[in-house]
Write a protein that binds this DNA or RNA. Structure first.
Lengths: 232, 232
DNA sequence: CAGTGGTCTAGACCACGGG
DNA sequence: CCGTGGTCTAGACCACTGG
């Protein structure tokens, strides 16, 4: 019935997790030091360290030199979600992905966005507007600006068959970014999404940065019914 | 100008990251084995392993025994966000948290939710409805059911001053859960949030499980203007 | 079957920071 | 100051899996 018992550091991890969940190590309690635990569990200190480090990263333990390791009083855990190509996202939902370019031009980036992204007024950008489809139905509307300073090749890239989303994932050396989800009325994207302008939809504003420079900013307006699923 | 150069495994991590970003190790390429890298960088194999493991967890590398380590073709990265007490979430936004209980009763859990959560029809639940405030203004409406099979103490808990959210974080041995964000019209929560019933708002459906049993299901309806921020 | 990553060990040194 | 976690090392064995 039960899964095979892990060995090594996972066994230590699981045992520590058990003691936390059973309140054998209650919230706020100071747990034994690595050396003691290693002796008790019959393994090396490095093994205990690995296990406790994972639990600390998960937010269940707080570790500080000299002070020792404590069980977090009110665990503040991390929710995770995988960010991938939009086409892959659609496939994951069991649908056939489609793509249609609406416009690829030089529409200027809104000044407010330029400023937020840290793109100077002289930096050229390219604008791309497109629609992603799931089984032929509108899935998400994409409105994007790409910094030509960071990605000069984007000036001549062909976005009629490959979406800017995928093109950037393949060509941009991106290092970090921010995602900002909000609820809004469909507004201008409504006609593309086949819904009413006042229909509530999920909007994702996403900024992406390379090692040193801003690369792109995009607003994704999802069709009604979209829901963002995460695990913790 | 530049930050202090890390040493140890972080130095290896940063060096590998640099080679990936500069395309010195292009997407899809097989990178040197741990032993080779350790020799080249002048450290132990365990140090290289630690560094490459982090990069693999970040989705930038794919590692397989015997096959070696490759640079991910299209990196599918993870977005993270910290899940904490609602009061803490409000404080993080620079506001003073407030709380008001609306109802704590035995309103039955909707059958569809019972089924989705895996709670049998005979399992008793407690219902709690409340409003969280930020600087006195409505922040989020909470509509929750708690399984009394998993948390019998919830039957007699007082939710007038401490929210069910915080009470559960302190008392429930929760292990995992799911979060589901969507956009919807404010609907029934509109009166509590001080907005129109058709105003688009963010809705979070959250299921929480203990080591073996379902604990609670909650629908959080956020006030207009809420936005979910994540980093990648 | 053999090469690669995954992990464990025993010992060591060090950095941080509580007392 | 000095205990605790953070990390490194050299070596070893093992598990998985590609060729």
């Amino acid at each position: 019935m039960s899964r095979a018992a892990p060995t090594g550091w996972q066994a230590v991890h699981d045992e520590a997790l058990r003691r936390i969940q059973t309140r054998e190590w209650p919230p706020g309690a100071l747990i034994p030091g690595e050396e003691d635990l290693a002796a008790e569990l019959g393994c090396a200190r490095a093994t205990v360290n690995r296990a406790l480090r994972e639990l600390a990263e998960a937010g269940l333990l707080e570790r500080r030199r000299k002070a020792g390791t404590r069980v977090t009083e009110v665990p503040s855990r991390r929710a995770q979600m995988s960010i991938s190509r939009i086409a892959e996202e659609i496939e994951t939902r069991g649908a056939r992905p489609g793509y249609a370019l609406i416009a690829a031009d030089d529409t200027p980036m809104p000044p407010a966005r330029r400023h937020a992204l840290g793109i100077g007024p002289d930096t050229p950008t390219r604008h791309v507007e497109a629609l992603h489809l799931a089984d032929g139905a509108p899935y998400v509307h994409e409105n994007r600006w790409i910094s030509l300073a960071a990605m000069p090749a984007a000036a001549s890239a062909d976005f009629t068959t490959m979406s800017a989303n995928e093109w950037l994932l393949r060509h941009a050396p991106f290092s970090h970014g921010t995602l900002d989800y909000s609820a809004a009325a469909a507004g201008e994207a409504a006609s593309h999404l086949g819904c009413d302008a006042q229909t509530p939809v999920m909007v994702l504003d996403r900024a992406t940065f390379g090692p040193e420079t801003p690369i792109t900013w995009v607003r994704l307006t999802y069709a009604p019914g979209f829901h963002l699923h995460m695990k913790i």
